[in-house]
Simulated scan of single mutants.
Amino acid sequence: MARDVQFTIDCADPAALAAFWAEALGYRVQAPPPGFGSWDEALEAWGVPPERRNDASAAVDPDGNGPRLFFQRVPEGKQVKNRVHLDVRAAPGLQGDERMAALEAEAERLIALGAKRLGRHEPAPPLAFGHLVLADPEGNEFCLD
């Protein structure tokens, strides 16, 4: 039986990182539970102190197809390269110059949202089609593929 999965990302600012990834992927920040107009309203009702209200956040696919991204605050900063990373499929089916131009355009959009460019890998057929490496606002690496 296939399992539903979510990706959990340790970070310093869950709300900001959830907002970045929601915009990057066409997701949305997860809405508060029914009966609450905002997360602050829900957390207030549950007795969560203000300093703990950004301990977690999530981004979800509005169509319900993609995995949920869960962001949790941790005290330590990022230390080393990710062992697992996201590949954002920004140019599926494209090749050569057309592919790289599409990746560059998407990189510029994400950089305007707070991402940082880390590298470019040129196409090397027959197996490598070219990709860009970026980091989200907290330094987590991801690829534009």
Rank of each mutant, 00 (worst) to 15 (best):
R3S: 13
D4M: 12
V5Q: 13
Q6C: 15
I9L: 13
D10P: 14
C11M: 07
A12S: 15
D13S: 13
D13L: 04
A16M: 04
A16E: 07
A16W: 05
L17D: 04
A18H: 05
A18T: 04
A19F: 03
A19V: 04
F20C: 02
F20T: 00
W21N: 10
A22N: 06
G26C: 06
G26P: 08
G26D: 02
G26I: 01
R28I: 09
V29M: 03
Q30S: 09
A31P: 03
P32R: 11
P32K: 09
P33C: 02
G37P: 02
D40F: 01
E41N: 01
E44S: 13
W46V: 01
G47D: 10
P50D: 14
E51S: 12
E51F: 08
R52L: 15
N54G: 11
A59I: 03
D61V: 02
D63N: 11
N65Q: 14
N65M: 10
G66Y: 04
P67M: 15
R73Y: 05
V74P: 07
Q79K: 15
Q79H: 13
V80T: 15
V80H: 14
K81M: 09
R83Y: 13
V84C: 11
V84Y: 12
H85K: 10
H85A: 09
L86M: 15
R89Y: 08
A91C: 12
P92N: 01
G93V: 06
L94E: 14
Q95D: 14
E98M: 05
A105I: 00
A105F: 05
E106G: 08
A107N: 03
L110R: 07
L110N: 07
L110Y: 09
G114E: 07
A115T: 08
L118A: 11
H121Y: 15
P125N: 00
P125M: 04
P126L: 10
L127G: 00
L127F: 14
H131T: 00
V133Q: 11
D136Y: 02
D136V: 07
P137C: 08
N140L: 05
E141D: 14
L144V: 09
L144E: 09
